[in-house]
Simulated scan of single mutants.
Amino acid sequence: MGENIVLNYELCKRILNRLTPIFNKDVNIIGTDGVIITSSNKKREGTYHEGARICASSNRNIVITKKNQHMYRGSKSGVNMPITYNNRVIGVIGITGTAEEVIPYGPLVKELVEMIINEMDSRIAKASKTNSRKEFFKDIIQDTDVKDMDYYISRAKLLEIDLEIPRRMIFLKILDSNQLDYQKIEILFRDIFNNEILNINNEKLVLLNSCNNVDEMIKKLLFELESNLDEKIKYYFIIGEECKSLVDYHNVYSSMSVIDSIIPKDTTEKVIYMRDYEIRLLINGLSTESKKVYLSKYINVFSEKNKATKELLRTIKVYFTNNMKISDTAKSMYMHRNTVMYRLNKFKDLYGLDLSQPYECAKLYLGILIYEDDLIKMNKDN
């Protein structure tokens, strides 16, 4: 609004709704052209008020009585006062009634109206700045070639954005979502997330978290979702790396978008860390031919005919991610350590691979990830 503020119907209606519970007199809000924009007396809306036009043009109060009423076309008894904003008359507030009744209230009503306009302008200015900040961050995370650093740095300074502050990027993805889901969640998060919330084409929310304790923040966000969303709505968070420089924003966003594309649709995980997908990001960059050549070494292991293989492979994955420690693997899988040992020995008997050897285990783990990546892509294509 700023210097070009105009009294449109919506703004005037909001002002009137604040005033009418306080005063039991008819109140009119009138444009500088003398046309009543809104009134507590609906019949007067859109009609001409000569007294208000003179009030606006002369920037002085006009008191209308029964004696002088004939001099002001379309006017009734009452007081009319100019509404000023930034030392400029932008409209007129009129109170209908006898001079004795309304003149004492005049200064108070004028002060209230101007206070409401300033308050609304402040909110709109704040909202405008918030939207500008959002557009800035959307641009730097989606710009595929951030070369004009000076341009972005200048924009950041104008918006009072400190790019020296590290911000951790967080994705929120809703499965089978609609626009309302993201809009509702964005509103829901505003009260507890005092950082940037970016709605990316109603396909995901990107949160830029500048506080240190990201795990605590995620707990709060999860609680809000569980408390306010239908339990049938499935979603997950992806926790990215910190963005410490301008170019980091696009790089982290791109990596997280790839991770998002390879997460299975049927995942039950609510919080996924980018660091746990670093090898998957590497795999995603391999050619189809390279993957095929690598998996050919383990053609028997990934045969669909072997029904026991899936459970064995899952055990091997957990075993490897637990630093090849049998006790930790058993704890993670809620089973006895002897069961883990039995499965690893069975795998050795079936395929001749000794998974107590770190190199053999690492190679097979990589093969499992490549195999799963292909399955995920096949399922998404279907």
Rank of each mutant, 00 (worst) to 15 (best):
I83E: 08
G78H: 05
Q69C: 11
M81H: 05
K76N: 08
S58E: 14
R73P: 00
H70D: 11
M71Q: 15
G74C: 07
H70W: 08
G74K: 09
S58L: 14
I54T: 09
Y72K: 11
Y85S: 09
N80V: 07
S57Q: 13
R60G: 03
K76A: 05
G78I: 03
K67R: 15
S77K: 10
I83W: 01
G78C: 04
K67D: 06
Q69M: 12
S75E: 06
M81T: 03
K67I: 11
P82D: 07
I64R: 06
I62P: 00
G74R: 09
V63W: 01
M81I: 13
Y85C: 14
R73E: 06
G78W: 01
S75R: 13
A56P: 05
T65E: 02
P82C: 07
C55F: 01
P82A: 06
Y72Q: 09
Y72D: 06
I62V: 14
G74Y: 03
V79K: 06
M81D: 04
K66A: 08
P82Q: 13
V79N: 01
V79G: 00
N68L: 10
V79P: 00
M71S: 14
P82F: 05
C55Q: 02
K76C: 04
I83M: 10
M71V: 14
S58C: 12
R60T: 02
A56E: 10
S58W: 08
C55I: 04
I62L: 07
A56D: 12
N59H: 10
N68T: 01
I64L: 11
R60E: 03
I62K: 12
T65P: 08
M71F: 10
I83L: 11
H70K: 15
Q69D: 06
K67H: 10
I64E: 10
